[in-house]
């Protein structure tokens, strides 16, 4: 994990220096000397210290060994699933909650290689109707509505 540690370390250093710098802009609002910039700056200093330690450890060869690896094909599936989720969030306002939820579940189950279509349809219809009904009638929380329900 040496390279990843160095990368993360540099990233965190950048994050904390920008945090430190941005916090400077709050200063004008300070009334009593311990204003909104104090805590973010303390955190930035701590984080830079830890990031430097992480980088030094990596160069000294003290990085942890990776035990669990990301499976490349599985990772591709995760990316596709996130894509499906984004499409779902768009569709939910167009088609309504129940319909788009059904599609979302149905497609995801297909992505996870559940081959029995009937099972997929039954499971997706049941779950989307139950969740919709709980929110609509029991908890009375407004859900996005579209052309359909």
């Amino acid at each position: 994990m040496k390279n990843v540690d160095i990368g993360v370390g540099v990233g965190l250093l950048t994050l904390s220096s920008s945090l430190f710098w941005c916090a400077g802009n709050f200063k004008d609002l300070t009334v009593h000397g311990y204003g909104p910039d104090l805590f973010p700056r303390i955190l930035a200093v701590f984080m830079s210290f830890l990031a430097i330690l992480l980088i030094i450890n990596a160069f000294l060869g003290k990085s942890l060994k990776k035990e669990d690896h990301i499976d490349p094909r599985g990772f591709l599936r995760v990316l596709v699933a996130i894509g499906i989720c984004i499409v779902y969030l768009v569709l939910v306002n167009l088609l309504g909650f129940a319909t788009s939820t059904f599609l979302f579940l149905f497609v995801l189950m297909a992505l996870l290689k559940q081959k029995r279509i009937i099972l997929r349809i039954i499971a997706s219809v049941t779950v989307s109707i139950i969740v919709w009904a709980i929110f609509r009638y029991f908890l009375v929380i407004p859900l996005p509505e579209g052309l359909l329900i």
Partner: peptide, 10 residues
């Protein structure tokens, strides 16, 4: 789990 995981995602 191929049915359960999408439900948890939802």
């Amino acid at each position: 789990r191929r049915i359960l995981t999408p439900v948890i995602f939802l």
